[in-house]
Nucleic acid binder design. Structure first.
Lengths: 116, 116
DNA sequence: CGTATATATTTACATTCATCTATGTCATAG
DNA sequence: CTATGACATAGATGAATGTAAATATATACG
C-alpha cells in the first residue's frame, strides 16, 4: 500500500477556503480533483451516475447519453475514477461506476464552508 | 447589458449533481467555474483572499505569497475575476480583490447537495 | 474453438494553458 | 512635467489536455 495520499484523502484534510489560506501541498492535492470535474462531459457523467437509480450506472447507459465515441467516454471515466470520484466494479460483461459521495461532500465543504 | 448568463448565475440555477442529470448547457456553464478553481495557484489565491481580514486583499499582499512573477499572479487573478469568483476594486494605487462567497456557496451546493 | 459484445488502452494530433520577459497604463509624489 | 510604484496586457514557448481512430482485452455464447 502506498504512503501517498489520494486526492480524495487530501481534500478531507483541509479547512474551508474562507477559513485559512491553503498551503501549497494542500492546494496541489485538491486541484486535480477539481480539474477532473472541470469538464462538461465529466460533470454530466458524474451527475448521471450520482443521480442514477441505485447510485450506479454501467458504461452502456452512459455511452448513450453522449454523442461521443465509446473510447472517449471510457477515457473520461478513467479520469474521474483516477481522481477518486467514481468507484468501479465489474460484474460479468458490464462495468458499473458509482459516485463517491463522501468525496463530493468533502469538496463541497472545502469550497463553501463558513469562515467561522 | 448582455443576455448571456455569467458562470456564477449559471451555477445558481441547477440542482445538486446527485439529484438529477445535468443538461449539456448547464454543464457547459458550470465547467468554466470549476476550471478557474482547478489550479493550485488559483486555489491558494482564493483562500488567501477569502480568509484575509476584511474578506479582501490587495495584489501587493498576494504577490508576496508566491514565488511567481507579478504578471503571472495578475493573470490568475484575471481568470478568477472573469469566472465571477473574485470582485475587483481599485482604490488609489492599489487594487483589492474580494471573494464572492455566494458563488462559492452555490458551487458547493451543486457539488455536495443531498440527493433528496 | 470462434465469433460477438462490452469496455479499456494506445497512438497521434490539435488545442489549451501556465509561465516568462517586455512593455503599457494609471495614479501619486516631488 | 517627470519619476516612481502598482498593476495589467502582449507575445512567445513548452507542457498538459481533449478527441478520434485503431487496436487490445475480456467475457459470453454457440
Amino acid at each position: 500500500m502506498s504512503l501517498e495520499l489520494t486526492a480524495v484523502q487530501t481534500v478531507a484534510c483541509c479547512s474551508p477556503l474562507a477559513r485559512e489560506p491553503l498551503s501549497l501541498p494542500e492546494a496541489e492535492g485538491i486541484a486535480p480533483l477539481l480539474k477532473a470535474l472541470a469538464d462538461p462531459v465529466r460533470l454530466r457523467l458524474m451527475s448521471l451516475v450520482a443521480s442514477h437509480e441505485g447510485g450506479e450506472a454501467c458504461v452502456c447507459d452512459l455511452n448513450d447519453a453522449f454523442e461521443l465515441s465509446q473510447p472517449t467516454i471510457s477515457h473520461h471515466l478513467k479520469i474521474l475514477h483516477g481522481a477518486g470520484l467514481l468507484d468501479r466494479e465489474k460484474r460479468g460483461v458490464w462495468v458499473y461506476y458509482r459516485a463517491r459521495t463522501e468525496a463530493l461532500q468533502n469538496l463541497a465543504t472545502l469550497i463553501g464552508g463558513q469562515a467561522t
